[in-house]
Design a protein around this nucleic acid. Structure first.
Length: 516
RNA sequence: GGCCCGUUCGUCUAGGGGUUAGGACAUCAGAUUUUCAUUCUGGUAACAGGGGUUCGAUUCCCCUACGGGCUACCA
């Protein structure tokens, strides 16, 4: 195992949209593969036909693409040497391994019907116990352990539905070596006889993932902590199949927890607390319900991935901003925290803010151009849509927002003249005798040849001085007159951006509105 | 209930037998910006509890408490 090529798989079930915890699992898997120059593959675990959700598989593929964590092998990514990568299409491959275990006495046929199982469970429940199909009960059930070979054959010939169950040996210590948790011991008596092959002929997760990991030469299996309790059964299956030496190294990741209270992060928490739990917006085909996504909320995929990487992992240094490539280099299991991490939506926003700050203004300008045009009804040839104008606006707005789309709301006054003026400021700062000053200022501004921020500021100060007015007395109201708001971007920078005509025009209009 | 995993500031975490227990988010205060935001500076704030082991435990061991996961012919 040590010398073989690193091959890591991400194996989600297409039962709905991939949630951010799943994306994190995919990310860590990708990072590990990338770090070692190995393979990262996507396998779709669709063995439960009753839970199939249309669109879920495409969603998973699109989400991985958006995040930039693309498999180099598997469903949606050109398949590869081990095709097919969809377990439903691999159905014929699994049975023989289950049968092999039956033949060798490590598994058995079970003919118990769902109704019979239910009855047993209810019975146990009545006595405040939990029914478990295991060493203690298997001899009281209807299976090839309790039935004669002839009876079993007769049942099978009749077409009676049956499952194949793992025959867990008694009184054994099963040890698993987890990459994150170290050695974990289980007693075999508490491991139940898991179903390996369902009555519809499909394998369960337990059998399927092992057969596929073995066949696909997987070296590392990274999955959520919820799988730790079934890991001993998985070890047993590898052992019975004679594949223990080829068994991938398991890593059980801590869970993502809700921001408030306790418990694992769920879709509900997102709705309740107003943050996305899915990478992409999801339209549920059955309920028609829409769940928000990081992409649609305006997150950069790089920021989303960076944030996700830090939920349970750290580089051991104080650096927090990492590109995907840097993450791949720095990634290691030693730095994965063992406890679950409460998700903090505020920090997620902070990551986006960092990426926005460092993004090239020209790129942002280009990116928001269409929505600026749409939001403010600006025609294609208008100078406000020129890259020069947009870039300056972006520079002004950049330190004030966490998302690009906020520039349109926070900085609306840069694109369109105000319709109303902050009343509180007007009441506080307006005095009729100031009218002469503002009128004079308009004229002075209009006289500037080169209408730069610096010239506008000088003119403003000179005009104020000439009128015996301290800048502080008229500054904020001037801002309100031009932008409608008492606060905002650097004022003279805004003047330069808007240009002389616009500023003078807004000044005249604003003054009139205030005096009215 | 049983089994397993876990527990450092409000949150994400670093650290590790002897430290002023470090950083980030959030928060508070000051400076800058005559505003707001940015930026800068500073502050508040943590080793769950109890036993060991040890010259010395937050760090190692045990117990307790608390939290989480699992306990399906779901993954």
């Amino acid at each position: 195992m040590t010398n073989s090529r690193v091959r890591v798989r991400f194996a989600p079930s297409p039962t709905g949209p991939l949630h951010m915890g799943g994306v994190r699992t995919a990310l860590y898997s990708y990072l590990l593969a990338r770090k070692h120059g190995g393979d990262f593959l996507l396998r779709i675990e669709d063995t439960d036909q009753t839970r199939f959700v249309p669109g879920a598989e495409d969603y998973i593929i699109e989400a991985l693409k958006w995040c930039g964590i693309e498999p180099n092998e598997g469903v949606g990514f050109g398949d590869g040497p081990h095709a097919p990568y969809r377990q439903s299409e691999r159905k014929p491959m699994y049975r023989q391994y289950a049968e092999q275990m039956v033949a060798e006495g490590n598994a058995y046929y079970a003919f118990d019907t769902p109704e019979e199982m239910d009855a047993r469970r209810k019975e146990a429940e009545a006595q405040k116990q939990t029914f478990s199909y295991d060493h203690s009960t298997r001899l009281s059930m209807k299976n090839s352990l309790t039935l004669s070979a002839e009876e079993v054959q007769a049942l099978k010939d009749k077409g009676t539905a049956y499952t194949i169950r793992l025959k867990v040996p008694q009184d054994q210590e099963i040890t698993i070596h987890d990459l994150i948790r170290g050695t974990v011991n289980f007693h075999s008596n508490i491991v139940d006889d898991k179903v390996l092959l369902k009555s519809d002929g499909m394998p369960t997760y337990h059998l399927a993932h092992i057969v596929d990991d073995y066949l696909m030469k997987i070296t590392h299996a990274i999955r959520g902590e919820e799988w730790l309790p079934s890991a001993p059964a998985h070890i047993l299956i590898y052992r019975f199949l004679g594949w223990e030496k080829e068994m991938p190294q398991y890593a059980h990741l801590p869970l993502l927890l809700k921001p408030d209270g306790n418990g694992k992060l769920s879709k509900r928490d997102g709705d309740r607390l107003g943050f996305p739990v899915f990478p992409l917006e999801w339209h549920d085909p059955a309920s028609k319900e829409i769940s928000s996504g990081y992409r649609e909320k305006g997150y950069y995929p790089e920021a989303f991935v960076n944030m996700l990487a830090f939920l349970g992992w750290n580089p051991g240094t104080e650096q927090e901003i990492f590109s995907l490539e840097e993450l791949a280099q720095a990634f290691s299991f030693e730095h994965i925290h063992k406890a679950g991490a409460k998700f903090d939506p505020e920090k997620a926003k902070w990551f986006n803010e960092q990426y926005l700050r460092h993004r090239d203004s020209a790129a942002i300008a280009q990116h928001i151009k269409a929505s600026v045009a749409r939001s403010f009804g600006i025609a294609e040839n208008d100078h406000r849509l020129s890259s020069a104008f947009l870039e300056k606006a972006v520079d002004l707005l950049k330190p004030r927002v966490q998302f690009e789309h906020e520039m349109l709301t926070v900085g609306a006054y840069l694109f369109t003249a105000p319709e109303s003026y902050d009343q509180a400021v007007v009441e506080k700062k307006w005095k009729p005798e100031l009218a002469t000053f503002y009128t004079a200022l308009g004229e002075a501004l209009n006289g500037i040849q080169d209408f730069t921020a610096a010239h506008a500021e000088t003119t403003f100060k000179e005009t104020a001085a000439a009128h015996n007015i301290k800048p502080g007395e008229v500054m904020q109201l001037l801002r309100v007159i031009i932008s409608g708001q008492g606060g905002g971007v650097d004022m003279f920078g805004m003047f330069e951006l808007l240009g002389k005509e616009e500023v003078v025009q807004r000044l005249g209009k604003g003054l009139k509105a205030i005096q009215a």
